[in-house]
Amino acid sequence: MWSKKDLLGIRNLSKEEIQIILELAKEKKAQMQKPLRRKHECVLYNMITLFYENSTRTKMSFTLAGKYLGMQVSDLGVQTSSVNKGESLIDTGFTLDQMGVDVIAIRHSMTGAPHLLAKNMKASVINAGDGTNEHPTQALLDMFTILEKKNQIENLKVAIVGDIAHSRVARSNIFGLTKMGAKVVLGGPPTLVPSSMKSLGAEIAKDIPTAIQEADVIMGLRIQKERQKGGLFPDLREYAHCFGIHKELLALAKPDVLIMHPGPVNRGVELTTEIIDGEHSVIYDQVENGVAIRMAILHLLTEGRKNYENFDQTRIYYRSFYQERRDMRYFNQEWQNSSCTTTNIF
C-alpha cells in the first residue's frame, strides 16, 4: 500500500516505490488510450494545479491525468490571482487548503517550495518542478519510457547532456536512474556541469563524444535561457557546435539508442531537427507516458488519503502560526498512526 502523503522528489522514494508507480502506470496507459476503459477511480477527489512558472506539457498532463481518473481539476491562474497582489506562497497554500483541496500540483521557481507547502498543509502536494531541485514526475515518465522500450533500466548507460546545473529534470533522473541500477553519465560545458554532481552517483564525461559513447539512452536538456545569468557559455552558435548532438555523433552510441528530451526543445541547439524527428526519438512517447505516470501517482496518493478520511473532515482553523505548527505535528502523528508514514522531511 502507498504510504506517502506527498510526492516531493525522487530522492526520498525507494526503489520499490518507484517500481510500484511504474507498474501501475502500465495499467493507466491502457486506460487512457481507450476512453471506454477509463474507470474514474478518483471521482471523489479534487486537484488544483498551482503553476508559478510557465508550462504546457506538465500542467496539461496533470489536468488530463486527473480528468481521466474522474477528478475535479481546477487551475489557479497565478497570473490573474492574488499572487499578483503580493500574496505569499504559504498564504496561498493555506487558502487553498481551507477550501478542502485534496491534491495540489505545484511548480515554483524556488527550490523547496513544495516542501514548504507539504509541511504546512493537509492536502497532498505533488512537486511539478521546484527551482533547480527536482521534477519527479518527469523522471518517472522518463524511466517508464525507457522501461517500455528497453524492458529494463538496470545496467543501461544513460547520457544526460546539456545544462545540468540548472536542470531539475537531470537531478531527478540521476536520483531515479541510479536507484534503478543504470549508469548515468553527464556531459556539457564545465560551467553547466558542476563537479558536485558526482556525489549523487553520476559520472562526468570529459566531453560529449565520451559521454554518448556506447550509450543506450541519450537525454538532451533544454538550454534554459531564462535561467541563464550570462557568462556560462559564449553563445548558442558555439553551444550547438561544441555540445549539440547531431547525426555524426549519434553513430558513437549503441545502434538502438533512444533519444529523449523533456521538452520544450530548442531545435538546432541541443539536438538537430533530424534527430528530434528521427527514428531513435521517443520524445512524443514521453509526452503520452507523462499522462499515464501522473494518473498512477494521483491514484496512489488519493488511495493513501482514504486511510485518514475521518481526520480530514475535521479541518482545523488556524489560530496562529505556532498553534498551526503544533496542529500539523498532531496531524502528521495521526497520519503515521493510521499505518502511513509521511514524507521524510518531518
Binding site: R11, T111, G112, D130, G131, T132, N133, E134, R168, R171, P194, S196, M197, S199, L200
Partner: peptide
C-alpha cells in the same frame, strides 16, 4: 555535495 543533493544554488 549537500547543495547538490538538495538542489539549492
Amino acid at each position: 555535495d549537500t547543495a547538490a543533493l538538495l538542489g539549492l544554488k
